[in-house]
Amino acid sequence: MRTTGGQLFMLVVINAALLAVGAMISGGTYLSPFNLQSMAGQLPEIGFLAIGVMLAMCAGNGGIDLSGIALANLSGVASAIIVGSFLSSTDNETAFSIAFIAVALLTGLIGGTFNGLLISRLNITPILCTLGTQMLFTGIAVVLSDGRAVAVGSPELLSQIGNGLFLGVPISFLIFVSAAGLIAALLKFTPFGLWLMLMGTNPKAATFAGFPKARVLIATYATSGLLAGLAGVIIAARNVNVKWDYGTSYLLIAILIAVMAGVRPEGGYGRVICVVMATIALQLMSSLLNFGGLSNFVRDFAWGALLLTFLAVGRYNLVGLLTPNKSRKLV
């Protein structure tokens, strides 16, 4: 294991620096409660997808989940159409909300399990499998919705999740933090977490040690799919409509967050807390670019450059250079 503390330390420093720069540039409005709340409300949807990518990467053997945002959109679209066909979002607000959430999560779970089955049973490479399912999920969403946006409306419970506050903190952010905490506990305290990391470190050894490899893989991708379903719920709750092509750049951003958080793309190491911190850092940066009045295209450029920078940081162990005592170079 490498520099686990170093990465977290660096992310905390980055976050603090970003807040300071933001406060300086905007003369304080960047730190206003309103801006902080809106930033906290925006980050869960991408955060869920990033945790999903992290889980897939940890499984090793080229593990990655490219189908996250497609599955999130499919969950939203499918749920809106299925639930909308027998419940009205204006008459039966609570029933509609609960049914919507349940169907969306179930869609995510099924989609993720499908990924896991294809990867573990048929031995399809994760890149290829999730590329295929990305197209398949998007395609199903297009077919179901005929390529149009589907109205969800804003029933009470759902709009509370999307826009409500609890003690001044957005509810979606609280859901994100608690889901992240659950996943972290799952990785730290259950055999599943241990199996996942050891399997990512050395798949061959895992086979000989008799790990239930197939089941661990299925559980990993199913969890990733469930998180995508959750992201779909949050997206639907925050926007009045759901559409198949929402958030096209989320695929890159989710991978960027995972790499920033120090998750090893070859598998075997990743921490949820780092992913959460990296998500926050990225959201701070994104809002900062907004405050600077830069176009979306500059942001795309910045994300690409940032991804490559963090890959270099991980490769040359630059974190270790900054915190020399805590690190040992990875052999």
Binding site: G62, I64, I127, S249, L251, L252, I255, L256, V259, P265, E266, F297, V298, R299, D300, F301, A302, W303, G304, A305, L307, L308, L311, A312, G314, R315
Partner: peptide, 19 residues
């Protein structure tokens, strides 16, 4: 030089070039 899967590197350069 980065020694990471080329998928991740080229996703980065895709955004870089297009940006």
């Amino acid at each position: 030089h980065l020694r990471v899967p080329s998928l991740i590197v080229t996703i980065g350069t895709q955004y870089l070039f297009r940006g």
